[in-house]
Simulated scan of single mutants.
Amino acid sequence: MLVDGMALLFRAFYATAVSGQFMINSKGVPTNGIHGFVKHFLTAITKFNPTHVAVCWDMGSKTFRTEMFQDYKANRSEPPVELMPQFDLVKELVEAFDVPNIGLAGFEADDCIGTIAKNCDDHLSVSILTGDRDILQLLDHRISVILLQKGYGNYLVHTKESFYEEKGIHPEQMIDLKALMGDPSDNYPGVKGIGEKTALKLLQSYNNVDGILANLHQISKAQKTKIEQDLEMLHLSRKLAEIKCDVPIDYVLEDAIYQINRDKVLTKFDEFEFRGLHRLVDQQKEYA
């Protein structure tokens, strides 16, 4: 199981931050995001029972994508002050589980996840735990995606077959879908005036961006004009949308064998002044 650490931490933080419940401990440190992260993390491991677990992280806001397009994610504000100290502390907690923290400056967590998922032994099945649908482009015969839903323990599990049933395109075509329609959350526009419905129809007919461009004479004049006017942004958006699966990260599969040391974890819980999480640890099946 590959865990999108940022997705879990942000989801957990904002779920309680909205009501001002930052869980500030006796040292004056807010821990609400970390507390919720642990609940998501252990609940998923109990349900899906992976043999190996690793957590991937973004390592700063500047990546190769911001070098290509300076407005990439420029619509996102700075993290709240209550969240800032939790970025390093949550990694400490992951270390207490003897689970690897993986990340590389210049790349996003998704790129690290994609690199590991696509390049590990072919006999291994990989599940990706996230709240971010961008990762669905990685789905294949042995990669599934577990999407967090509202609350704890609620998931939408996607395979390449279920994705095709939902969208009518294959997972790898999602890159071309985002190239056409853009992504407001990542702040790149795609082709102005082309939304998801039109983009899906074009991909179902012509397979990918190259196929569409080779058949511009067959599509409506309005769609042809929009694509021709935004051709440069179409190609750039496709590069921004594609998860890199050749990131130069170092990792050892054996280091990710999931076998926790209960005392070590509970000591870290006590250090963070967590209450009510011990029972989730006791539901785990493997102890070192």
Rank of each mutant, 00 (worst) to 15 (best):
E161Y: 09
D183Y: 10
M233A: 03
N75C: 08
Y258R: 06
V18G: 05
I135Q: 00
D250P: 10
A96P: 13
L266E: 11
D282K: 11
L83A: 03
I24R: 01
A12G: 02
N215Q: 09
D176S: 12
L147Q: 02
K226N: 05
I116Q: 09
V265A: 05
Q284L: 13
S220I: 01
R65I: 08
K268G: 01
Q149N: 08
V265M: 05
K221L: 14
A199W: 07
L148G: 02
V38S: 01
R133F: 11
V55E: 00
K62W: 09
V247D: 00
E166F: 10
F64D: 07
L180G: 00
I219Q: 06
K268Q: 07
G5Y: 02
E166Y: 05
E286K: 08
P80A: 04
L177A: 08
K244W: 07
I102W: 05
M6N: 09
K285L: 05
P100T: 00
L89Y: 04
D270C: 09
R238A: 04
V55F: 07
D186N: 07
Q21V: 15
K197C: 04
C56K: 08
P189D: 01
E172G: 01
D134Q: 01
S162I: 01
D98Y: 06
K62Q: 15
M84T: 15
D183G: 05
N119S: 11
L202V: 10
N215D: 08
L89H: 03
T43C: 11
V29N: 02
H141Q: 11
D98Q: 04
L156R: 12
E196V: 13
Y258T: 14
D111L: 08
Y164L: 08
K73H: 07
H158T: 04
S144I: 12
M233S: 11
M68F: 13
R262L: 03
Y14D: 05
M1T: 06
N75W: 10
G276R: 05
K178A: 04
G195R: 14
I128H: 00
Q259A: 11
T66N: 08
D134R: 03
L9H: 03
S220W: 03
V18W: 12
E78D: 13
D263L: 15
A256R: 05
C112G: 10
M174G: 01
D183T: 06
M6P: 02
P79R: 12
H52N: 12
V29K: 09
N187I: 06
Y152I: 14
S77C: 13
L138T: 07
V252L: 15
V265R: 04
V145N: 01
K62E: 05
P171G: 04
Y188V: 15
N75A: 08
M181Y: 07
L129A: 00
M23G: 00
H235P: 03
R65F: 12
A74L: 08
A199G: 15
E67D: 10
F41Q: 00
A15V: 06
E166C: 03
Y164I: 13
G190H: 01
I219T: 06
S26H: 13
V191F: 09
N32V: 12
G276V: 08
G103E: 05
M1L: 09
A44T: 10
Y251S: 03
Q173A: 11
A74S: 13
